[in-house]
Amino acid sequence: MSVNLQALDKLGLSAATKATTTTDTSKSSQMGQDMFLKLMMTQLEKQNPLKPQDSSEFLSQLAQFTMVTGIQELKNSFSSVASTMSEGQALQAASLVGKRVMVESNQGVLGATGGLSGALSLDANSSNVTVQVLNAGGATVRTLELGDRKQGNVPFTWDGMLDDGVTAANPGTYTLKAEAVVEGETVALAPHVAAPVQSVTLGGSQGIEVDLGVLGRHKLADILEVLN
């Protein structure tokens, strides 16, 4: 809480103010609530009764101090709310460990016993929606033909089989390339991929983050959907 000392000059408190700072010239030119009230009372006690201080100046300074006090109290309240929200986010993030979440990524992991799932977000009705699965060498090993789709969320799943429908792909990390035809033009889409949360990092430089293994770390706000 602080009020600029220069504003007290008009109340006849400049002398008292200077007396408090002569022993330490490096002190701030701001004062706290207790000092302000003490100087205010001193000024009232010592003013000339035949020539009292202008009440308008007194009320103006008092209003200024009240406003500063209110702003500081409001700031403290917001700080308390922010701290509570941060703690709530931490608990929420910790509860995600072991669950599968959806984040935006052009990579997906094919497990030894399961497929790879994700979704696309279409801003408009589209035709010939496809998702290509590329191996580490950049070769397409599977093309998922999703056909005509309406605006909105479009889920997709790769069962791990190659284009021949017989051979199973090796487990590992694959790149996803999604496209759709919108009003006659082919546009690229950003895939959303599902992955399990392996751990949660709290208090880092990026805030709360979830570790999705091969897909890396993502902010809590990057999670688009919690699947299970």
Rank of each mutant, 00 (worst) to 15 (best):
T69L: 05
M40C: 04
H192F: 11
V210W: 01
N76T: 15
L96R: 04
S205Y: 07
G98P: 00
A178L: 02
N128P: 08
L144K: 03
G213S: 00
H192R: 10
E87C: 04
E225L: 10
G184V: 11
G137Y: 13
S56W: 08
A82V: 10
K38T: 12
L91V: 11
L62W: 14
W158S: 11
V181F: 06
M31C: 01
L120C: 12
M161L: 14
A195P: 05
L116P: 07
M102Q: 06
D164L: 09
G152W: 04
L91R: 15
L59W: 13
V181H: 05
L122G: 14
T84S: 11
I71H: 09
Q47N: 13
E45T: 04
T140H: 07
M85I: 13
G88T: 12
T140L: 05
V133G: 08
G88R: 15
V133H: 03
V154P: 00
G98D: 07
S60P: 04
L11H: 07
F58E: 06
D159H: 01
A178T: 03
E179F: 03
M31Y: 10
R217P: 03
G88A: 15
T201R: 15
P196D: 06
T175L: 06
G12A: 01
H218C: 03
V141H: 02
S117Q: 15
L116M: 15
T157M: 10
T173C: 04
A16L: 11
G216R: 12
A16V: 01
S2D: 04
T143N: 13
V182W: 06
A178W: 02
E183C: 02
M40L: 12
A194L: 11
I71P: 02
T173P: 09
T17E: 09
I208G: 01
P171M: 10
K177G: 05
V197P: 08
T42H: 10
S199F: 04
M67P: 01
G32H: 00
K75G: 05
Q198A: 14
T167V: 05
S79R: 13
K177P: 02
D163C: 02
S117H: 12
E179R: 06
S77G: 12
T130S: 09
K38F: 08
A169W: 07
G114Y: 05
S105M: 00
T201V: 10
L146M: 04
R142N: 03
Q132C: 09
A195L: 05
K177L: 12
L50I: 11
Q107M: 07
R142C: 00
S121N: 04
